[in-house]
Design a protein around this nucleic acid. Sequence first.
DNA 1: CTGAAAGCGCTTACAG
DNA 2: CTGAAAGCGCTTACAG
Lengths: 322, 322
Amino acid sequence: MNPAANITIQHVADAAGVSTGTVSRVLNDRAGVKAKTRDTVLATIQKLNYRPNQTARELSKQATRIGLHISGVPKLTRFYMLFWRKLVEKLGADGYRLEEINTFSDASLQSLDGLILFGAHDDDPRIHFLKTKDIPFVLIGHGQDIRWVAPDDIGGAGQAVGHLLRLGHREIVKLTGKLDFQGAQDRLSGYKQALEDAGLSFQRDLLLEGNFSALEAYRAVRKAREAGLKFTAIFAASDEMALGAIAALEDLGLNVPLDISVVGFDDLPTLGDRLTTVRQDISEIVTTAVSLLKQGLAKEPVCHKLVETELIVRSTTARKRG
Amino acid sequence: MNPAANITIQHVADAAGVSTGTVSRVLNDRAGVKAKTRDTVLATIQKLNYRPNQTARELSKQATRIGLHISGVPKLTRFYMLFWRKLVEKLGADGYRLEEINTFSDASLQSLDGLILFGAHDDDPRIHFLKTKDIPFVLIGHGQDIRWVAPDDIGGAGQAVGHLLRLGHREIVKLTGKLDFQGAQDRLSGYKQALEDAGLSFQRDLLLEGNFSALEAYRAVRKAREAGLKFTAIFAASDEMALGAIAALEDLGLNVPLDISVVGFDDLPTLGDRLTTVRQDISEIVTTAVSLLKQGLAKEPVCHKLVETELIVRSTTARKRG
DNA sequence: CTGAAAGCGCTTACAG
DNA sequence: CTGAAAGCGCTTACAG
């Protein structure tokens, strides 16, 4: 149809006066092509506007097919979308093919060579199931005796709280997401631990629960404040929640960060232009997941990795007043 | 790797005592296979747990590659995710392959046979660009002299407002999304028109603007109500906005639907258990988009279609009080 | 450093 | 109704 679609590696080879093998070699950046030949081929590709057929490539390479399964609600989450995009990109570049799977059955797993699991819960039933199978997988989150990679949620929470403590804050609200999600639990643990390390005790009434949405965060914070809860800072479990919290504070006539400091978690592109937050290195998580999976495909022993987070100080946090 | 991955059509053919051609025919539901043979093959497929290699299939079929481009923010939206999933499903079943494209350049368009455009704006620059090219495309939205399919946003808004009018409501807030999005404009037009048809005039102060998010809807409604705005019903531009509106009303001590009726738009699965809303037939939109695209690939003349919406009455609307 | 050829797993005219 | 064979567009040992 599209004229360009008809240009195959054969055309390029003919036009450049070489074999398709040679074209393929330059396409794949393989060593052992004379510089001059490479240049000619490259030029021809340019001129003909040739673009390799990805499908043929996959077939020829016997591309590994990786399944991606998400458990729970995070499916429609901004963070998940970013994760997913990076994964497609990374896997595509490596000649793998990603397929999102919806049902977790024998049938849906059959044509897969490997699997990535997103949305980790403690005692994840998917893991029990997979352990009886022969298919390698990696969990985004952490578990026992399996391949996993996770952001250092505990450490990240520690960075956030540490930052607030250094600014003089002592009454720090923890605005958490649903606690059946592993990441939410860990961020809460990190919060508690950081307080403890500073010699402060955890106050139950400073724990506000939401469902990761901006709206629920808004309501929780507003309600708590209106009910007279005293605090000078908020550590939210996600950027979205942080934004909801900030909106609530502002609607109550409070200034962020002058009256109240707020720190988020994730560092999502669009959201965070002014938000102090803890950055998750999605890129690194994805890269690690892929390399762990490769190890799995190669039958190498199980291993795992915690990916560092980074505190990004912007303008929603300030020294405690007075 | 995965044992099942090694089972090819050849294994099935051997085990069933037929040729690969025959197996392929039953796989593709082609006529002209003896019932008995078909049964044997089917049974063998079952027994061997065979699953066709999609990549090989695509290559062999010279699968058409369809690009999907989204303009603006809707990319991370629930509605878009649903749309996208349906599209992948539909296109996959038809042997097409969907590729999401991010940049809108000559290069990224080159290997594509067709294109689907999401997130329509009036005077969409993408369309100007594509009109100079030879590549067929369909817009989800509406335009001039191009292939397009859109939900009947105007009609849908009419259904929503009609429903509220029938319930006796006269002061109906229109909670709108960003008006540079075509769908938002159309839903507003439908609202205005429905009022006019009922002999009512459009009141500027009843128009509340948000950005399609639940949080902004919440704030807009709450602020308006607190400022003393009088109304007995709300027509929101999306389900998410409707939910934000309901939360705001409830936080103000109002009962939905006894005090205020609320109707949404979209009918997204998870959100709408109790919401009265206007359902968009995503499935139908996708199916239509695909068939329009096929027409384009076949060089058939341009045409377009408006997909009907349906009013779903649940429990967030009630007769006006008193 | 490069070419000829086999192969990836399917589909589909073409015979019969 | 079914088989044998060519072909989809690549990649990659294998020679040279």
